[in-house]
């Protein structure tokens, strides 16, 4: 039986596509992004002049849903509350740009999200447990 911690790490290490919610001048905003988990932080890329980059500069609080879909239905997923900043971690940025060569054409910034709280959710929404990875 997999522990919640194992499940969480499996989800995080899948480099999956998730939903990231942000604050856009007092109105919520959200979009799908691809996340990468490196050394306890989540990373994603966005264009330098994108709405999401501006939003997190104004307010860094974010909330992310990340998880498995099976036949279009989400089975188990993670809810991650975190603090986002744009960063110049060139090593990680290079790794991500290599994975997505089309991104190399634009002016991209790396967004780093430090998780502050993580919960595992099951699709029926009933089994919500907090996960601590550190």
């Amino acid at each position: 039986m997999k522990s919640n911690k194992d499940i969480a790490l499996q989800i995080l290490n899948e480099n999956s596509i998730g939903v990231m919610a942000t604050n856009n001048n007092g109105v919520p905003n959200s979009r799908y992004m691809t996340f990468h988990y490196v050394e306890s932080k989540l990373y994603t890329v966005a264009e330098k002049d994108s709405t999401v980059a501006r939003e997190i500069t104004e307010y860094g609080g974010t909330h992310i849903l990340l998880g498995y879909e099976s036949e279009g239905i989400l089975e188990t997923f993670l809810e991650i509350e975190g603090s986002a900043v744009t960063t110049l971690n060139d090593i990680v940025k290079q790794q991500l740009l290599e994975k997505y060569p089309s991104h190399a054409e634009g002016d991209y910034v790396l967004i780093q999200i430090t998780p502050t709280r993580m919960r595992i959710m099951n699709k029926n929404g009933k089994n919500q447990e907090e996960v601590h990875l550190i």
Partner: peptide, 17 residues
């Protein structure tokens, strides 16, 4: 029928299915 919905709790965003 199934989507995600984001709201703000104060300044903090939350999103759920």
């Amino acid at each position: 029928n199934i989507g995600t919905m984001a709201t703000l709790n104060g300044r903090q965003p939350y999103v759920r299915y």
